[in-house]
């Protein structure tokens, strides 16, 4: 029986990262893994809540975890790296610190919510890697990749403490998945260097420089595109490329994709349903690579 995956989209997947949600839905549909959105979820609090009021940050996550529990699901999938980390960190702290546990329990009780035990927070990359597996992913491929080598960029929070996505120092699962579906990857040495997150909106100058380094290294390694697993990484690398170009005097026109888009394409999804048109940088290249073709190419 196909199992049902409950997911927590978070604010980004409803706005700037909408292509992530679209492509993930399409990908999971093709893989016959039904997706269901967590009902009436609230914001995870991201990094800002931790910086102001840690207890509130845990309360926010606790509500989401409790809602997932009420849904009877033992897994909650969080595609955004920030949501993933905050949910996991909350669980970790509730387990480790009795004070935090007592406060979270009392808060849930006064809100009339059940306790949140037993929910496993997961990331779609790790779900595909563990629950589907490389072999099955490989067997689903119906289209040949036309984009040349890509750089797999893991960013920060998805592969740091509290995680089961991959190891922190040299994550390779996205690379393995890409290779399995016929997408060559380059050895991207900045794969876990932070994109600055919200810094591009606050200390803009610094944020832009961080992203310049990421783009430059990908280009130097011969990557034609960068593949991401986080809506913030995608946004920063994508939306500020013109500016980075202007500031650095170097030309970049690198498409920034989600791994779910690349997989969806490989598995024969309608490109219109994968949100390729939502990319800002490298639009011409994207058109070349992903334009609808009359017949789906058979993968040899």
């Amino acid at each position: 029986m196909a199992r049902d995956y409950l997911y927590f989209p978070g604010c980004s997947l409803k706005a700037t990262g909408v292509a992530y949600e679209e492509s993930m839905q399409e990908l999971f549909r093709i893989l016959e893994m039904p997706l269901r959105e967590l009902e009436d979820w609230n914001c995870c609090g991201a990094t800002s809540y931790m910086a102001i009021d840690e207890e509130s940050a845990f309360q926010l996550s606790a509500r989401n975890l409790s809602l997932a529990r009420q849904n009877g699901n033992s897994d909650l999938m969080a595609p955004c790296a920030a949501c993933y980390l905050v949910l996991r960190k909350t669980q970790d702290y509730v387990k480790k610190y009795p004070r935090v546990h007592r406060h979270v329990a009392a808060s849930l009780e006064s809100a009339g919510l059940p306790m949140m035990d037993g929910v496993k927070v997961r990331h779609p990359l790790e779900v595909l890697y563990n629950d589907v597996g490389l072999e099955k992913l490989e067997s689903k491929v119906v289209r040949r990749w036309r984009g040349g080598p890509v750089a797999c960029y893991y960013g920060c929070q998805a592969v740091r403490p509290f995680t089961e996505v991959d190891r922190a120092h040299n994550p390779i699962r996205m690379d393995e998945i890409m290779k399995a579906v016929g997408v060559p990857t380059v050895d991207y040495s900045l794969k876990t260097k932070c994109c600055g997150g919200a810094l591009t909106g606050t200390i803009h100058d610094v944020g832009v420089r961080l992203n310049y380094l990421l783009l430059k290294e990908a280009a130097r390694k011969g990557a034609n595109a960068i593949v991401t697993l986080c809506p913030l990484c995608q946004f920063n690398l994508d939306a500020y490329q013109v500016e980075i170009q202007k500031e650095s005097g170097e030309s970049f026109d690198t498409p920034i994709l989600y791994f779910t888009q690349v997989l969806g394409w490989a598995f024969g999804a309608d490109p219109r349903k994968l949100g390729f048109k939502r990319g800002i940088a490298g639009r011409k290249l994207l058109k070349q690579w992903f334009a609808e073709h009359a017949e789906v190419e058979q993968y040899v």
């Binding site: 980390l85 920060c156 929070q157 740091r160 120092h169 919200a198």
Partner: peptide
Amino acid sequence: CASCYACAV
């Protein structure tokens, strides 16, 4: 600090 946790790991 962008909370990337690189130092922590």
